[in-house]
């Protein structure tokens, strides 16, 4: 991103928040890094102990605070460090997705993935795909709070 110009002249770039589980996806991100794999710089990562730790409120709050997309990534089913955290998370996220679809939030604002610690290439690919999908959707205007400039 070019910071030499005021924001009006810069091309819009999506801002994406990724909640990555400590044991698989975060390690996958690390592997992508040490393997020198490229992925878009639009993703900001928050490390969480488990995908089951992600409260749907975090996702909604992030959207309200103005991020354009949210990704939650955890261990593949059967690989959870806490054995069952991602299974519970799956039911929870399915409900959230169903709800967001029904109220009319665009499909793709909130995405989910399973990335293991050995899948550095998949991590970089998922990040690219998520970024491109959110870029195609454009800025998040639906759930974002209007900021009143004083």
């Amino acid at each position: 991103m070019n910071n030499d110009h005021p924001s009006e002249f810069r091309e819009w770039q999506p801002r994406i928040l990724a909640f990555l589980c400590n044991w698989c996806s975060y390690a996958g991100a690390d592997l992508a890094g040490v393997s020198r794999l490229q992925y878009p710089p639009n993703v900001r990562i928050i490390r969480v102990p488990c995908s089951g730790r992600v409260n749907p409120a975090y996702i909604l709050k992030a959207l309200q605070d103005g991020v354009d997309g949210v990704l939650v990534s955890g261990c593949h089913p059967g690989d959870c460090h806490y054995l069952t955290g991602n299974y519970y998370a799956r039911r929870k996220f399915r409900l959230l997705k169903e709800l967001l679809d029904f109220v009319g939030v665009e499909d793709g604002r909130v995405q989910f993935s399973w990335v293991s610690a050995a899948e550095g290439a998949k991590f970089s690919q998922v990040m690219t795909e998520v970024t491109e999908k959110v870029r195609a959707l454009g800025p998040n205007r639906r759930l974002a709070k209007r900021i009143v400039k004083m």
Partner: peptide, 16 residues
């Protein structure tokens, strides 16, 4: 209650 449990065969299609 269903949200306090899980099954191996739950829908996985919406996850990459």
């Amino acid at each position: 209650p269903p949200l306090a449990m899980y099954s191996m065969g739950d829908c996985n299609e919406f996850i990459r």
